[in-house]
Each structure stands twice: as C-alpha cells, then as structure tokens.
C-alpha cells in the first residue's frame, strides 16, 4: 500500500535549513495498522503529511497504492486526498459552521454526489460511530470524543484505502482515547490500512507494528506480538 525509499525532507526558514527526514525507508502492507512514534521534532508528523500528500518531499520516492507520488499537481493531489486517503487530525478540524452531518458529508460534495444522497450516506456513517442522534448538532455542541468520532466518520465516508491519523487521541482523555482507538481498530478490521502518529505508548501498543522515529531516521521497527 505504501512504499517509501530514501525519503528526505528539509524545511528552509530564512537562511537556516532544517533537515527533518534524513532518508526513510518504509513499507506498509494493505490492511496493516501501523503507529509511528517519536519525540517531538523527530519528523513523525512531517512523514505523515508527506504520506497524505499534504506536504512535498525533496529526495527519494513515495509510492501510494503502486503509483509514484512526486510533483503531483494540485488537481491530482486533490483527487487522491478525496478518494484514496482519509485524514484524522489531533484538533479534529471540523468546519465550525457546519453541523456533524454536513461535516461528514463534505468529502462526497467534492465527489459531486447529490446532497440528498450524501446526507443519507453521512447519516449511515454517523450511525457507525454511534452519533446518529447528534447529526444536527454543531461541532461546538459536541465533546472532544464526539468531535473525533465525527472526524472519523468524515474520513471513512469516501471509502479510502488508507487512513492517516495525526495524534488522533492527543486532545482526548484516556477513556475516550480507547473508544476512539476501538473504532479505528474496527475500521482496520474492514481492511483499511491505518497509519497513526502518536507519542502515547498505550495507543501504539494497540497497533500491529510500531515504527520509532528519531532525528529523521527510523530507529526501531517493532511488530507487536499480541496482535
């Protein structure tokens, strides 16, 4: 599903160049559930952004579902983000003036699905994350866990091949964190590849494989036995 070879990425701020990723090799199979760990500044979020075509890389190669992602134009990138990828963010990133249902339905808007149809599908997905009754609530009327479940429904609605989650439990307490993780595991059980950036050990232990990043390089690649 994901193949990365010798990936380099630097950020240039003024005269200073910050070498964030210093040659990453990574292979993720279809249906895998992988977590990426590392201290802050280790490059884990940068890696996830590149995987999500939200950011570009400087050297190396990145194959997503067999296709090389390099210098992709915005239109094509938008198509990939819309159809192949699903995002879950630490800060949820729901659109504040849209209710839960409309937020979930948004990816289908960009697939030109009719309003009636996409609201219907969105309701199904909200049901799936247990928020059917909250469909018409605005994001500021939802708790953090509920918001993240709405975000998960939104990531799932376009039936992506891979879901990228950037600290999905970072803003949640431990009980809701586990709820969210359980939902993500269920999603993974349906065959969707899952990559989760986290710095919480109990979260990473719930995944099949943990990739440890340190100073822009993969330090350890551990397969969890209990999974």
């Amino acid at each position: 599903m994901v193949k990365i070879e010798q990936l380099h990425k630097s950020y240039i701020t003024g005269k200073n160049s910050l070498h964030v990723l210093k040659g990453i090799d990574l292979y993720v199979e279809e249906g895998e559930m992988v977590s990426i760990m590392g201290s802050s500044g280790s490059g884990k979020s940068t890696l996830l952004n590149i995987l999500g075509i939200l950011d570009t890389y400087d050297e190396g190669s990145y194959y997503l579902a067999g296709e090389l992602v390099r210098n992709m134009n915005e239109k094509k990138a938008a198509l990939y983000r819309n159809r192949t990828l699903g995002f879950i963010f630490q800060q949820f990133n729901l659109i504040p003036f849209k209710n839960a249902l409309e937020n979930v339905a948004l990816p289908l808007y960009y697939q030109k699905v009719s309003r009636k149809k996409r609201n219907q599908v969105a309701l199904e997905y909200l049901d799936k994350v247990g928020l059917k009754d909250w469909a018409h609530h605005m994001p500021n009327e939802l708790s953090g866990g509920q918001k993240q479940r709405v975000a998960i429904a939104r990531a799932l609605i376009s039936k992506p091949k891979i879901i990228l989650a950037d600290e999905p439990t970072g803003a949640l307490d431990s009980v809701t964190s586990y709820e969210v993780m359980n939902i993500l595991k269920e999603v993974n059980n349906e065959g969707i590849t899952m990559m989760i950036v986290t710095h919480e050990h109990d979260i990473s232990e719930m995944t099949q494989r943990v990739i440890h990043l340190k100073d822009g390089l993969i330090e350890k690649n551990i397969t969890n036995r209990h999974n």
Partner: peptide
C-alpha cells in the same frame, strides 16, 4: 484553516 480542511478532504484549488 477551513480551506486547508477542504483541501485535505479533496477540494481542488
């Protein structure tokens, strides 16, 4: 920020 979210969800420029 909203534009960023929309782009992440597949909005074209």
């Amino acid at each position: 920020r909203e534009i960023g979210v929309r782009k992440a969800l597949g909005a074209t420029p």
